[in-house]
Amino acid sequence: MMVKPLAAVFSMLLLFGAAKLPFEHRLEQEDRAAFFHGAKLSLGLRDQVGQLGFLAALSGFRSLVADFLWIEAHTAWEGTQWGRMALLFNNVTTLQPRVVMFWDMAAWHMAYNASVAAMQDPKQPRLALRLRAQREYFELGKDFLIRGIENNPDRYLLYERLGIVERDKFGDHCAASRRFGEAAAIRGAPTYEKRFMAYELSHCPGHEREAYERLLALYKTGRREWLPTLLERLEYLQKALNIPAAQRVNIPEKKL
């Protein structure tokens, strides 16, 4: 007696399945396009988080697992276990690649905290080795930011952070300028990105003319942009480029 309704229900589910399959496929693509779901879980994750976490990662527990690992990383920080932190940050960002905050904080811990600790490591008397360790942590922080940008090309924050790391930790003003420029190009980015880009450009050899033009353009937008650094860089460039006095803008005496 039960065979007929069961068969009917089974074929109904199959028919519905055939109808929804292309819909689901399209919706997933739209989702990807809209949110940049990004990073398909890399296979390595299975080994890193362990079987249970892997299963959970795929089953709606992803954000919770990431949070617990994040808290664990925080505990590791309190114990100054830098290697362990890097490992945990890798797992967290693999689980939640779209949470910009995780990339940002991971990079910050590596480039700013771990690097300083490595430089001051009392167990390593040789300066060259301490410098090398410091440099490795700079690279690690930069690497987090680059991977974060790959996963979140639509958010300005990580470009800005990368610009800051390039500027402060690597002293590469040309690269820093590029990064600030990329940040400025993103919708919703703060106006200071443009300024930062021009400042760094003014330190980048061979780009003085471009920097000057950019700073001048900013200067001409109004008094809001007449910040001390901007005026100082503009003045420097006017001199360096030998801009004729008639074309020079009048730099007010530094009062601020």
Partner: peptide, 16 residues
């Protein structure tokens, strides 16, 4: 059913 598609939480919390 594709249950992962029905989950908007992660994206929303990420700020999208």
């Amino acid at each position: 059913p594709d249950l992962r598609l029905l989950n908007l939480t992660d994206d929303v919390v990420a700020g999208n």
